[in-house]
């Protein structure tokens, strides 16, 4: 099977994810975009694990990580909502110098 469409898919997902991260203002949507990027990585890992299974094993670890990430991320979002009653990431700029 030729790798072309895997590559196209993963690149497309990364770009879409990136686009989402930099343009969207809803934290849950940003989380979704991040999940897309992670998925794109997984596609590559799985598709190119031809010699052995390391790639697939790694992808399974990535899935676990992303589950954890979503878990914490959503907790943060919920907390944010509870504190500010407004979940616009533009308002959450406590990191500003």
């Amino acid at each position: 099977m030729i790798a072309f469409h895997f590559l196209i898919t993963s690149i497309g997902l990364v770009l879409i994810g990136l686009y989402g991260v930099i343009t969207l203002r809803h934290p849950i949507k940003i989380l979704m975009s991040i999940e897309l990027i992670l998925n794109a990585a997984n596609i590559n890992l799985v598709a190119f694990s031809t010699e052995n299974l390391i790639g697939q094993g790694f992808a399974s670890l990535v899935i676990a990580i992303s589950a954890a990430e979503v878990c914490v991320g959503l907790a943060i979002v919920y907390n944010l909502y509870r504190l500010k009653k407004d979940i616009d990431v533009m308002e959450v700029n406590a990191l500003k110098w």
Partner: peptide
């Protein structure tokens, strides 16, 4: 440069991009 430091992770990722 200070203007870059918006405190928004989103913007930082933009700069990474």
């Amino acid at each position: 440069a200070r203007k870059i430091q918006t405190g928004l992770v989103r913007d930082y990722s933009l700069w990474i991009l």
